[in-house]
Design a protein around this nucleic acid. Structure first.
Lengths: 242, 242
DNA sequence: GCAAAAGTGTTGTGTCTACACCCATGT
DNA sequence: ACATGGGTGTAGACACAACACTTTTGC
């Protein structure tokens, strides 16, 4: 049967249990970082695991993921949450046949949720030793984010409400893992109507330099912005938004 | 507990059960068609469902999907199978809390597997009344296919080993749902090294016309061919395949 | 005035669509 | 010869990268 919360884990194994796991990503100090907690007990004592836990009867997978996450991160701080995949290899967890549905969650860079002592952010290209197959899941989350940054507006989930273009460039650069030009990023995102200027400017800093104009994302829900590059329908079917 | 094969389905429901479902698509007679079987019993007696069934202990989700599919379609006829999503809404199946992991399977257009009497192909834009939430799952499968046709080589899974360009154009047109130009399709796929000429030509038909050159897909495993359109890394980092 | 950061103008390139034109086959 | 389909050549439209140049701030 599905594992009931509170059941002693030393009982004979049911046919399967099901957990949800979340790859929560945020750009911190110029690097893409993942939220991990350090296991105190075997298996994999001392190694780092994704936040998550058992699925409760009657809840959806997304609710389960949000519920387990609420222990680590205030749920309202998650700007986006989407399902990644469900893993089912019989040996992915020792001693138990455990299905895991992984989610990708994104936290805007201006938030800093309070975390329990055993939990922390880790730059994604210097992960500490992972528990189970969680290392691979984190990488799958990064790939998903990279892809969606290119053809959707997911950027909104990494950015604060308002930002300058250089700040946004740094977020994209950290998430994509390569240099990004603020000049070209602006033109791409404005042409696609993904971002718009707010009209105000950031207060000038102490180091000099022209203060940057502030922008915001037009939509803060996921939308596809590159309606597919290739193999478009024929004809003069290009409608322009006003 | 996970439902064991042969268990009477009238026993009390466990906390959850888990099934796999497959959206199997093939281009038939110029239309994209999905494989469905007609339910004999309630719930949803007479309505059409996706092939699939309960997950057995110790098998992976993909193995489960292939196993259930083997009843309907010879597994070797599936050119591609990938996971779509896992559904968990508590009310998606009446009287039972059932998780379902959906897969997308593709069958090349030159195959015609033998099917059980209750099973058949249905053009995807004129589906018969679906059981459960299977209508939405089929549409999700089509969306996935459309997207991947644009930036991967999935076309191989819809096409026979060898084909002319007009045949391939018809497959793409059926799957994408809009007209496709054979001229441009050829140039896109050849430039990206997705297809190559075999050297031979199709035997001339009875209606006249120049016989078409035969092509094949270079790879018959999924590969990303449009390494992302936008937000590429900077610099002269364009390597060309030989 | 000078350094630093932001923003704009402009040019070049690659990739795709559209369409005209040529080629090969059957009747 | 002519109809029917296959294939190539070429021109135009975008969208993007790169980079020079201008603007606005602090010192």
């Amino acid at each position: 049967m599905g594992r009931k919360p509170g059941t002693d884990s030393t009982t004979a194994h049911p046919s399967s249990s099901h957990v949800t796991l979340a790859v929560v990503l945020q750009v911190r100090a110029g690097s893409l970082a993942a939220l991990l907690w350090q296991r105190a007990q075997d298996p994999f004592a001392g190694r780092w695991a994704l936040p998550g836990g058992y699925l409760d009867p009657g809840e959806t997978l997304e609710q389960s993921s949000r519920r387990h996450l609420a222990v680590k991160v205030d749920v309202r701080e998650l700007a986006h949450l989407e399902q990644l995949a469900t893993l089912s290899e019989p040996d992915r967890v020792p001693g138990e046949w455990q299905l895991a549905t992984a989610y990708l969650g994104l936290v805007p860079s201006d938030l800093d949720p309070v975390l329990p002592a055993d939990t922390g952010w880790h730059p994604i290209d210097r992960l500490p030793p992972p528990a189970f197959d969680h290392g691979a899941i984190v990488l799958a989350g990064r790939e998903r984010l990279r892809g969606k940054l290119s053809y959707t507006n997911v950027g909104f989930a990494l950015a604060p409400e308002e930002f300058t273009l250089s700040e946004l460039r740094d977020l994209y650069a950290a998430a994509l893992g390569h240099a990004v030009s603020a000049t070209n990023l602006q033109r791409v995102l404005v042409r696609r109507d993904v971002i718009e200027p707010t009209g105000s400017r950031r207060a000038p800093g102490p180091v000099g330099g022209r203060p940057g104009a502030l922008y915001r994302f037009r939509e803060r829900r996921l939308a596809i912005t590159d309606q597919f590059a290739v193999l478009r329908p024929p004809g003069p079917a290009r409608a322009a938004a006003s």
